[in-house]
Simulated scan of single mutants.
Amino acid sequence: MGRRIMIVGNGAVAEGAGAIIDAADFVVRFNLSRNTAQSGRRTDAVAVCNTGRPANEMLDGPEWRDSAPVRGACEIWSVRDPQKFASLRPQLAVSHPELDDFCDDRTEDFARFAAENGKRHRIIPAAVHEAADAALVAHSPGSYVVPSSGLVVLFHVLSEPEFSGSEITLAGFSHEGWDGHPFVAERRLVAGLADAGRVHLIASSSPSLSPSQGA
């Protein structure tokens, strides 16, 4: 029997779902993890947007560094491969000139923070990002900038041998937010993975806290 892996987005979770999340063997949260009080407390890895404004917000102030999820985590995952995002800069300069700082890389700063605090740092490879892009094609994503960090982390866990055979459950995923992510297509993709039994979902509100197989 594989490990139980819980990937917890920053959206709403069902009442009482925190107990299910805390009972997992490995819990991944994201960035500032602002829903931690409602979604349990266990955190083994914090996945971060390691470029642009989100990275600056986390690294340049005390809130992220001093948060309970970051203090409790044993790993920091940089979701954005530096070389991949460097390669995106020229095309974004044309298509999205307002995102002039989107690819500014802070990966080394996250790696330094992790080393100084006894945590493992890993960079999710560009190939994972590209696999997510390829999978989205079948779900009519339209024009978008990049997949969300949640989708990239999900594809990393699904493909990483370290997690092979694990039961993977998602919670706190509303598939809403910045319009540079293809959230409608991501919702369809995740629902398909759930229907195929590759992931389980805990809805944002549910009379039953059993992880569902549906969307």
Rank of each mutant, 00 (worst) to 15 (best):
M1Q: 15
N10L: 09
G11I: 02
A17I: 08
G18P: 10
G18Y: 10
I20K: 14
A23F: 00
D25S: 04
F26C: 05
V27C: 00
V27F: 00
N31C: 06
L32S: 09
S33Y: 08
R34G: 14
G40W: 04
G40A: 00
T43R: 06
T43F: 05
V46M: 02
A47I: 04
N50Q: 01
N50I: 02
T51K: 00
W64C: 11
R65P: 11
A68C: 05
G72C: 01
A73T: 03
D81Y: 10
K84V: 08
L88M: 15
P90S: 07
L92T: 00
L99S: 05
L99M: 10
F102M: 05
D105W: 12
D109Y: 13
F113W: 15
F113V: 08
A114W: 15
A115C: 15
E116Y: 08
H121W: 10
R122Q: 04
R122L: 06
A126C: 09
A127M: 08
V128F: 05
A131R: 07
D133T: 01
A135V: 01
V137N: 12
S140M: 07
S143I: 01
S143Y: 03
S149Y: 02
L151V: 00
H156P: 03
V157S: 03
E160Y: 15
E160I: 14
E162W: 14
G165D: 13
E167T: 13
E167S: 12
L170Y: 02
G180F: 09
P182Y: 08
F183D: 06
R187N: 09
V190Q: 01
V190L: 01
A191Q: 04
L193C: 07
G197F: 13
G197S: 13
R198V: 11
V199M: 11
V199G: 10
L201I: 12
L201T: 09
A203P: 07
Q213F: 12
G214I: 08
